[in-house]
Simulated assay, not measured.
Amino acid sequence: MRLSSKIILITGGYTGIGRAIARRCVAEGAKVMVNGLEEDRGKSLVEELGAENASAFTIDITNPQAPQKLVAETLRTYGKLDAVVNNAAFIGSSNINTTDIPLLERMFAVNTIAPLSIIQAALPHLSKVHGCVLNIGSINAWGGEPNLLGYSISKGALMTMTRNLGDSLFREYGVRVNQINPGWVLTEKEILNKEQQGMKSDWYKDIPSIFAPAGRIFTPEEIATACLYWLSDECGPVSAQVMDLEQFPVIGRNLPKSWEGSH
């Protein structure tokens, strides 16, 4: 049991990657406080994992009181806090012409500012146990796509924050801060998003190799498995690191021969 006796707070944990992380953490011996926006999904997840292993707290993490409330509820329920997983994210398409200030402010509120606020609220308690923070970023943090401008900027800021706090908090408080940057993941929301964009319902069964050399994209469960190392004591003193979870080099690629000379 790699996470035995750990108490872990997971934002955006009612669906997708967050839900997979919650399931895997419980399977490895942890107890989890899971946050999300849809009350019914939270209740269903607690029923699945067992009330002795999981609790749900439904609140928008951009609510100014959310960080303190999430930490307080975790402490009230379990008595301590060993780790925070900042997984909640706002994903939306925008480019240079459509990225207006309100959209960008919303992106930063969810993807950058709220994670920082939650870390601030959790720090006094994480420091008592030399706990850790795992931020869930995106490979788009390295530059992103033209139609993911606002999202990419916010995830780039999150990555800089991880490296900064991973150094300063570990030195002063013994709290590790790391990040994983998943590539394309097959979540239920991603399936719905692509259908709304006009793609066929089973679009994920026929993805060009340029995007998925394996012939498929990642499952949430695969991302959750990667999180175990960073949340466990096996991680040792590793801090301020960012790990890309992708099928190809984010910087520098061997493109298929069919693409040679076409770009």
Rank of each mutant, 00 (worst) to 15 (best):
M161W: 04
E145N: 09
G18A: 01
R163Y: 13
E222N: 03
R171Q: 13
W259H: 12
I217G: 03
I113H: 10
P146M: 11
V84E: 05
Q197D: 14
I61V: 15
A122H: 02
Q65L: 14
K31D: 00
P220C: 11
G36L: 11
G215H: 02
E172C: 02
T62S: 12
E52G: 08
S239D: 07
A212E: 08
T58A: 13
L228H: 01
E39P: 04
E105A: 09
I101E: 14
K189T: 05
I119Q: 04
S168F: 10
L245V: 11
N147L: 13
N164A: 15
L45A: 08
G261F: 11
S93V: 10
D60I: 05
P213E: 13
P124W: 00
D206M: 07
P115F: 09
G42T: 01
N140Y: 14
K80M: 11
A89S: 02
A157H: 03
D82P: 05
G150T: 06
M159Q: 14
D167Y: 15
A30P: 06
L9I: 01
Q247N: 03
T58M: 14
I91S: 00
T112Y: 08
G92F: 10
K194L: 12
R171E: 11
T98I: 11
A51T: 09
A66L: 06
R41H: 14
S239F: 02
I7D: 08
K6F: 07
D202Q: 07
F170L: 04
N135W: 10
S5Q: 09
E221C: 05
Q196L: 14
A114M: 04
M161D: 03
I17G: 06
D82I: 05
V250G: 02
A83M: 08
A27Q: 13
F218W: 14
S262M: 15
V238A: 11
K31F: 03
A83E: 00
